[in-house]
Simulated scan of single mutants.
Amino acid sequence: MDPDAEVDFDMSPFLVRYKSGRVHRLMGTSRVAAGEDATTGVTSKDVAIDAGTGLAARLYIPTDALGVRGGHEPEKLPLLVYFHGGAFVVQSAFSGAHAPFLNALVSAARVVAVSVDYRLAPEHPVPAAYDDAWAALRWAVESCGAEVSSGQEPWLAAHGDAARVFVAGDSAGANIAHNVTLRAGGVGGGLPGSARIEGMVLLHPYFRGTELVPSESAAAAWSLEKAEQLWGFICAGRYGIDHPFINPLVMPAPEWAALGCRRALVTVAEHDTLRDRGRRYVEALRGSAWAGEEAVLYETQGEDHVYFIHKSGSSGDKAAEEMAAVAAFIQRGR
């Protein structure tokens, strides 16, 4: 049989890998152009961060913040570094799914955002995504407050506030946000200068483990065997499903002290099989040695995993309510 047609691993509905090594992505490959979004009043552009690895990002800013009138100093905004979801294997910072969501979030929270286009598995297994995320976060923080003429990214230099740094993500992106925040507060971590992560936002985080929680045990499609296979594919078998990368609940209470943020927000949805892991994450955080000030759990009834990505343009509904909760969390920053 032709190895370019013989399936090696079927990760539907995300992708299929063939024995030749060819990867065929079944979703998340669409791309929308950057520019001004008249509906939200947000402008975006694409930037390269590291040509060697291909690390790139899409930047977002409220359009009215770009104009400096009457000799006033440029408006300083919280810096939000965002990691998209997609099971570590699909989607991008430029996808048609995430661009509308980021436009809406930047408008609601009034931030300057860096949506990171990290490398995907299986071509680049975990921890490549974590390494890219960390590099992008450090790049973004270093760019904030720099002289605009210094060669740093001008939007961040003029408008980014390194004293108000937030990291966020949905699903696998929330997993990445957690691991980056853990690195920021751990031994050998730390952000440039005096910068610290003010807040971490985990939207329907992708965590698993061998000990099933109620929302998982009720879903045959998310059996332990399948979860182990998927995670093994994502990390090329380097880490088990109880490694802290994918199962932070195995961390002893003292180790949570390394989580380098002052506040945390975790959101879950009633019909999401990952729901109870998000709940237990908040419980573990509250009962740990973490020195943060606030760990908030936000729950949505009657919805499934990352429903808000597909409903980000609607108003007066659950997606808009969740967006408002995230924006309020960011705006409470010092």
Results as ranks from 00 to 15, higher is better:
Val165Gly: 03
Leu80Asp: 06
Gly188Asp: 04
Glu303Trp: 07
Glu216Gly: 00
Cys144Trp: 14
Gln301Lys: 12
Val268Ala: 13
His84Asn: 10
Met27Gln: 13
Arg275Ser: 11
Arg22Glu: 15
Pro3Ser: 02
Arg164Ser: 15
Ala93His: 00
Ile197Val: 00
Asn179Ile: 01
Val296Ala: 10
Ala220Tyr: 08
Gly85Ser: 09
Ala140Tyr: 03
Ala109Asp: 10
Asp10Arg: 10
Val213Ile: 07
Ala327Cys: 02
Val180Ser: 00
Lys311Thr: 13
Val47Tyr: 04
Ala113Pro: 08
Phe329Glu: 08
Val201Arg: 00
His243Leu: 10
Trp231Asp: 02
Val23Leu: 12
Gly28Ala: 05
Ala257Val: 11
Trp231Ile: 01
Met27Ser: 12
Tyr307Phe: 15
Leu156Trp: 12
Ile197Tyr: 02
Gly313Ser: 06
Gly185Ser: 02
Leu156Gly: 10
Ser171Gln: 08
Ser215Cys: 12
Leu265Asp: 12
Pro125Asn: 04
Ala195Tyr: 04
Trp256Ser: 03
Gly302Glu: 00
Ile246Tyr: 07
Lys318Phe: 03
Ala65Cys: 15
Gly145Arg: 05
Ala128Glu: 04
Val116Lys: 02
Gly190Trp: 07
Val32Trp: 06
His271Lys: 13
Ala295Thr: 08
Trp134Phe: 00
Met251Asp: 09
Trp256Arg: 06
His72Gly: 13
Ile61Trp: 10
Pro122Tyr: 03
His24Asp: 15
Ala295Leu: 09
Ala146Cys: 03
Met27Ile: 13
Leu182Trp: 14
Pro252Ser: 12
Glu322Leu: 15
Ala218Met: 07
Glu153Trp: 11
Ser44Asn: 06
Ser217Ala: 05
Ala97Ile: 12
Met200Phe: 01
Ser150Gln: 08
Val167Asp: 03
His72Cys: 11
Val68Ile: 13
Met11Leu: 15
Ala295Cys: 09
Phe329Trp: 11
Gly52Tyr: 07
Gly188Tyr: 03
Leu191Asn: 05
Asp64Glu: 13
Val16Thr: 14
Leu285Trp: 06
Ala51Val: 08
Glu36Val: 10
Arg275Leu: 13
Val180Pro: 03
Arg286His: 04
Thr300Glu: 12
Met1Val: 01
Gly151Ile: 07
Ser215Glu: 09
Met11Asn: 14
Gly41Asn: 11
Arg263His: 14
Gly292Met: 13
Ala172His: 07
Thr53Leu: 01
Arg277Lys: 01
Ala48Phe: 05
Val201Ser: 00
Pro122Cys: 03
Trp290Thr: 00
Ala163Val: 06
Arg208Trp: 06
